[in-house]
């Protein structure tokens, strides 16, 4: 098992490092880094799918156009079903989140790629944006009656303060779990893939066993990438529903 250096020298976390693209060691605020590159690629993918794909405006859609239309109606229906009909005005917002998370996840599966959504900084900003939007929207639309979200009317009176405390805590845990779920799932998958790839380098003649494992893992990771994007989006819709209709 041991190679020349003595012991396995797998560094599963190196792939998540933020590096400047054009030389230099320091990462300032405006440095062009691999984060910039892969986010730009996500933007390019979005443009290719949603703008170039739908360019024909054909009545009978071409292949790329029907993929764009399927994505559109999938998210549209999700917003309408989960958050209600009046949430349709937030559809571009939800669509932005979905497409960004989706393409970041999927593009991150390319070998040697960088996955922006595996960084807690990125997902925390996404989740906080949702959290702040939802909270502000709730207070703007419903005023102080938005606080009834935490006051469970159907519970016995004695239990209500306790429940209110629990509801309050769970409300503030939302952005934490919302962001860490995505970052953790992405990070875990990539780290595991890297560890298995390291095994392949260390095993010598039996290298094909970990490679088979990595292949299977990649299929699972593709599924996870899509499902995490779906879950992130649908939770955004659920939180939006709480802001629009808090009395449920």
């Amino acid at each position: 098992m041991a190679d020349a250096n003595g012991g396995l020298n797998i560094r599963p976390m190196d792939q998540f490092e933020v590096r400047p693209l054009f030389g230099g060691d320091t990462v300032g605020m405006f440095t062009i880094t691999n984060v910039t590159l892969w986010m730009a690629l996500a933007v390019v993918s979005v443009v290719l799918l949603m703008v170039v794909g739908s360019r024909g405006r054909a009545l009978v859609p071409t292949r790329s156009q029907s993929v764009a239309e399927l994505t559109y109606s999938f998210i549209y229906k999700m917003v309408e079903d989960v958050s209600g009909k009046d949430a349709v005005r937030f559809f571009p917002y939800v669509m932005t989140i979905f497409l960004f998370v989706f393409f970041s996840n999927v593009l991150g599966l390319i070998p040697f790629a960088f996955t922006p959504t595996s960084h807690i900084a990125v997902t925390a900003v996404l989740a906080l944006a949702v959290f702040i939007t939802v909270t502000v929207l709730g207070f703007v639309l419903h005023g102080t009656s938005f606080l009834k979200l935490f006051w469970v009317d159907s519970a016995p009176l004695a239990l209500r303060p306790v429940l209110a405390l629990i509801e309050l805590i769970s409300y503030f845990v939302r952005p934490v779990s919302h962001s860490i779920r995505l970052a953790g799932a992405m990070m875990a998958g990539h780290a595991v893939a890297k560890v298995f790839a390291g095994f392949a380098a260390a095993l010598g003649a039996a290298f094909f066993i970990p490679i088979l494992a990595v292949t299977a893992l990649y299929a699972l990771e593709l599924l996870v990438a899509v499902i995490q994007a779906y879950v992130f989006t649908i939770l955004t819709c659920v939180y939006l529903k709480d802001a629009l209709h808090p009395h449920h």
Partner: peptide, 25 residues
């Protein structure tokens, strides 16, 4: 690296939002 990531994330999200809400959707 947080300021860098957050800056580019915000730029990306704004660009995607504008593309989607102005052209694609």
């Amino acid at each position: 690296t947080f300021p860098n990531q957050i800056l580019w994330l915000v730029v990306t999200l704004v660009v995607i939002y504008l593309i989607l809400s102005r052209v694609a959707l």
